[in-house]
């Protein structure tokens, strides 16, 4: 048997109060082992207080070529931004 161990993506919460952030990937036989290996590979210097791992093939990603239809419509809706509205100076901070 010469089978490559499955690939997992690793996400780390660097400190309490912050979100988990993607930091890389690694190979492991299952999620439990991936978690242990993530600890050794990505948190040797207290880089994290919590780890998530997920099999890479479980991630659904948008495609770069879909960028326009996915994200472009947002740019013509500038009324969604606070700077779209003019407020007299005397109102002060709003």
């Amino acid at each position: 048997m010469n089978q490559e161990l499955p690939l997992f993506e690793v996400f780390i919460r660097s400190k309490q109060g912050l979100e988990h952030k993607h930091c890389g990937s690694l190979h492991a036989s299952d999620a439990q082992q991936a978690l242990q290996m993530a600890r050794d590979v990505y948190t040797r210097r207290m880089e994290g207080v919590s780890i998530w791992v997920i099999a890479s093939n479980q991630i659904t990603a948008s495609q770069p070529e879909d960028k326009q239809e996915m994200f472009e419509p947002a740019s013509d809706k500038i009324y969604r931004h606070p700077t779209f509205y003019e407020i007299p100076d005397e109102v002060g901070h709003m």
């Binding site: 010469n2 990937s25 690694l26 190979h27 050794d40 590979v41 040797r44």
Partner: peptide
Amino acid sequence: LAKVQDEGGHGLYLYSAGETLGTSRD
């Protein structure tokens, strides 16, 4: 020991970066 472990870790970060280009670890 810590330094040599780091070297191993650095290899793993880099293999994982290499795999994003469509080549496999194997």
